[in-house]
């Protein structure tokens, strides 16, 4: 048995190296590339180029501007796919009622773990909100911020208890409502520029951010915010905030549902 496994490992390793050689020397993948492809150069040069205002996105962060501006509709559908996965998860546990009385004893771990969890729990939402707000300036964005935020309820479930979380109002219905609110906000921001364009008797596309040559409507990139000229990059800032709301509520919902005790509905599944 041992000899067979070692033989298999050696064979797989040798095959991997041969495949890597083949991939490189047939030119399918680049070996130590010495420059960017033309498309990448176009994106890198034009996202924050105020002189090419007809193709710019108004954001110095190239990944966010491709994600929410140039390929915006794709990202909206991707968020919808995640929403559908959460809906499927809720369907699996649809007969379960999440009440404080039925969500565990609520004892938690030791005092050491509880104290450190409280300190960490206070900082996680701040960091997540910071990532979401700076999503159009630095690497990060709505999804990353939401994933960071969802660590907070996970920590509370692990160290304190699920019961505390449910007592404080992190129930199933409220989180689902927040998730839906985030998705609706994304939809509204997607059609806000066309609505503005209709009011001004011009044309615009869905998910349009900055003004184009043939569609001269758009939100301005630099906004006067309480007397300070701030770079909000048009719709990108608001899209990041809505995605942050949607993803943080959705992932928290997933964690709460996965942690819920199942005594009250185990029988039901078995008799189905």
């Amino acid at each position: 048995m041992e000899k067979r496994l070692i033989c298999l490992g050696v064979c797989i390793t040798v095959t991997a190296f041969i495949l890597a050689f083949a991939l490189i020397y047939t030119g399918i993948v680049p070996l130590a590339p010495t420059g960017n492809r033309p498309l990448a150069t176009i994106f890198l040069e034009s996202t924050f180029n105020a002189e090419k205002w007809w193709i710019w996105a108004g954001s110095p962060e190239v990944v966010t501007s491709i994600l929410w501006d140039y390929r915006g509709i794709d990202t909206v559908y991707e968020t919808t796919v995640f929403f559908l996965a959460i809906i499927g998860a809720i369907t699996v546990v649809r007969t379960m009622k999440l009440l404080p009385e039925t969500s565990g004893k609520g004892r938690g771990l030791t005092v050491i773990a509880k104290t450190i969890t409280k300190i960490t729990f206070a900082t996680i939402p701040i960091i997540a909100f910071s990532i979401a707000v700076h999503g159009h300036l630095t690497p990060g964005g709505g999804f990353q911020a939401g994933s960071a935020f969802a660590v907070a309820p996970l920590l509370v479930i692990a160290a304190l208890s699920l019961r505390l979380l449910v007592e404080r109002g992190w129930g199933k219905e409220r989180l689902l409502a927040l998730r839906t609110t985030g998705l609706i906000l994304i939809g509204i921001i997607a059609i806000i520029v066309p609505i503005l364009a209709i009011l001004r008797h011009s044309i615009a596309y869905i998910m349009q951010n900055q003004a184009k040559l043939w569609a001269p409507a758009g939100l301005s990139a630099v906004v006067d915010l309480l007397g300070v000229k701030s770079l909000l990059s048009g719709t990108l800032f608001w899209l990041n905030l809505s995605e942050f709301l949607a993803v943080s509520a959705g992932l928290s919902l997933v964690f709460v549902l996965l942690a819920a005790p199942t005594k009250n509905f185990d029988k039901e599944v078995k008799t189905q």
């Binding site: 030791t110 050491i112 773990a113 450190i116 969890t117 300190i119 960490t120 900082t123 160290a159």
Partner: peptide, 13 residues
Amino acid sequence: LFVLLTAPVGSHV
């Protein structure tokens, strides 16, 4: 700082 705070708690738990 946070790694310093949380690593001992993780091994304790």
